[in-house]
Structure formats: structure tokens, C-alpha cells
Design a protein around this nucleic acid. Structure first.
Lengths: 187, 187
DNA sequence: ACCTCCACGACACGTGGTGTCATCAACTAC
DNA sequence: GTAGTTGATGACACCACGTGTCGTGGAGGT
């Protein structure tokens, strides 16, 4: 018999999402989250650097998957094609998490503090992809633009997917968004 | 004789910049800033919503000037031209503030918390310009792209201007950055 | 002479976030 | 199986951020 219940981190995330959704982000204290997860405030901060981070847990994994795909792209692919190769493994991450993502998006939309965190996460993601491209020999300016474009496509597609009732087709929504962006920039 | 020394807000900003530069942002407390300005912690929070905001004081003014210029642009101007019209009154704001801007930029670069705030300010700026364009009859997609492009040009130019030794030529640096962006997107 | 206004100080309080030490099951070594 | 080690957690103290509330006294009007 283990001394503590398993998956403390997962319990904290679940409790946080639930409470944020019920009472609002500001109105929920870290002590309340910890108590709902059967832990203490101190332990919460051992898993998450601050109160905001509990909502951005998957971002390192997303970034890692994406840059791996960029690095693995064929050498003769265009910069933008290499970036978009990252969308496949990323789309895979969101298969069964639709309702979770929806609640999370509502919480973030209602809180400037959380929007700041989301913006800097996307900024860092674009920077990491840019670095991966430069590593593959792409010129700096092209790398920056391709990375930023890819992240924008992801951002738009994610927002649409979250609002949809059919959760099964993240990849299709991403393709549609990309097609739209192409037609806009072409005109 | 007035009961209090004038320009409390300006004194707070000056004290904050000085202390942040000398000791670092995290290591400086709001109480120290207030004391250096001859005020109290409570008064600091009457002027600034939080500790970060003392470094982003001019942003409302910048946004206001920019969207006024966009609204005043000739009706037959292209969306991007209308956005770029905002660069003139904005450049005017930074004439004598070069050394101030330089110190401020160093402080922000050293602090993720402040970078988050800067990103959301630029995000809101782009959103406000987008709204102004739509108000002038520009289609939504074109408005978003033009606004984002204009803000990007400003961002790059500002970063370069801050690092330069010659403070007199913000406008010239902006023009150079725009030209570069054009050549990149054209290819 | 009186009144109202209002920028600021004084004080108390809740919350976020951290440093430090104690605890005690699980694991390892012999 | 006894002893020592490890590591996740609790307990507690502490500081800084941010806010609500009330008191104060000079400025400016009537």
C-alpha cells in the first residue's frame, strides 16, 4: 500500500479546472484547489510554478512534439511545409480532450492574467520552431515568418475546434484554416 | 502652497525605473518605490493597477494616437497604408525619450512577467487597429493582417531604435524595417 | 466663516508564493 | 530482518502584492 494516493498532479489539474469553472478563476484560492485534491497549498506549488501554470500543463509536450516533427521533415521541404508537418502530431494530442479543452478555453477567455500567459506560451512556441528551422539551415527571416504562420494556423484552428460540437476532426479544421490563410495572403 | 508635491505619477515612474535598473525588478518592492517618491504603497496602487503597469504607462496614449491616424487616413488608401499612417504620430512620441526607453527595454528583457505584459499590450494594440480598419469599411481578414503587419514593423523598429546610439531617427529605422518586411513577403 | 472636495496616509486583511524542517512509507544493502 | 537512505508530502513561518475602509487637512468655492 502506497503512502499517498497516486497522480497528485492530475488530481490538482482536475480540481483546479472544476473549481475555476464553477466559481471563477480569481475567486478560487490555491488552498481550495489543494484541499479538493486532498493535498496542501505547499504541494500545489511543488507541481506548478504559479496558479496560472496549472492550466498550461501540456504546453511543453506540445512544443516538443512540434519541433521534433520540424526537425524530422525532409530536407527538400519548404520552410512552411516543415512547420506544418508539426500539426499532425499536435492534432493527435487533442483527440479525447475536447470537453476539457472547451472548459479551459472559457476560463482563459474570462481572465486577462491567463491570456497573458497564453500569449507568451505561443510566443515561445514560435521561437522554438524558428530555432528548429534555423537549425535545419533555413534563413532567419524565412524561419521567423514560417514559424509565425504555422502557429497562427494552429491558434485559429484550435479556437474553432474548441467551439465545435464535433470533436473528432481537429486535423480537418486545421486544414481549412490553412487554406483560408493561403487565399488571404495570396490576394 | 500646495499640500503635496506635484506630479506624483511621474515621480513614481521615475523612482520605479531607477530602482528596477539598480536592483532588479523582482528585488524592488512597491513600498520602496513609493518611499523613493515620497509616497506610500497605497498611493502607488491608486495610480497603477499593479506593479507591472508602472512600466507601460504610455501605451494608452500610443494606441489612441495610432487609431486616430488610421481613422484619419484617406478613404482610397490601402489598408496597410492606413495602418502605416499611424507610425508618424507614434514616432513623434519617442523623440526625447531614448535613454529612458533603453533602460526600460533592458528591464523588460530580464523579466518574463514583464514580457507577458508587453505581449498583451501589443496584442490589444493590434486588435484596436483592426477594429479601426473595420470601422473604415475594410474587410475583416484584410484588417487583421494589415494591423498585425503594422504592429510587427513597429515592434522591430522600436527594438532597433532602442539599441542604437543615434536616438534621432526613429522614423528612418521604421522605414527600413518596413522595406525589409516587404522584400521578405514578396519573395 | 463655513462647506465640500479629494489626494493622500494609516491600518487591517486576504492571497500568492517560498524557505525550512519534520515525517514516514518504500526501497536498498548487508 | 535490521539499519540506513530516499523522496513525496505536511506544518509552519514569512514576505510581498493588492484591496477595502476610514481619517485628515489644505484648496477652492459660496
Amino acid at each position: 500500500m502506497s503512502r499517498w494516493k497516486p497522480d497528485a498532479e492530475g488530481r490538482l489539474i482536475k480540481a483546479a479546472i472544476t473549481l475555476f469553472d464553477e466559481r471563477g478563476y480569481e475567486e478560487t484560492t490555491v488552498a481550495q484547489i489543494a484541499e479538493a485534491a486532498g493535498l496542501t497549498k505547499r504541494t500545489f506549488f511543488r507541481y506548478f510554478a504559479d496558479k496560472r501554470e496549472v492550466l498550461f500543463n501540456g504546453s511543453e509536450q506540445l512544443e516538443q512534439r512540434w519541433i521534433e516533427a520540424v526537425a524530422a521533415a525532409p530536407a527538400d521541404a519548404s520552410p512552411l511545409a516543415a512547420v506544418l508537418a508539426g500539426l499532425d502530431p499536435v492534432a493527435e494530442m487533442f483527440g479525447e480532450r475536447h470537453s476539457f479543452a472547451r472548459v479551459r478555453a472559457r476560463i482563459i477567455d474570462a481572465n486577462p492574467e491567463l491570456q497573458e500567459r497564453e500569449l507568451i506560451k505561443l510566443h515561445r512556441l514560435a521561437a522554438a520552431i524558428t530555432a528548429a528551422l534555423i537549425d535545419s539551415g533555413v534563413a532567419q527571416n524565412a524561419a521567423v515568418l514560417a514559424a509565425q504562420t504555422g502557429v497562427t494556423v494552429f491558434q485559429v484552428a484550435f479556437a474553432r475546434w474548441v467551439e465545435q460540437d464535433d470533436p473528432a476532426v481537429f486535423r480537418r479544421v486545421m486544414d481549412e484554416s490553412l487554406e483560408e490563410l493561403r487565399s488571404v495572403t495570396a490576394g
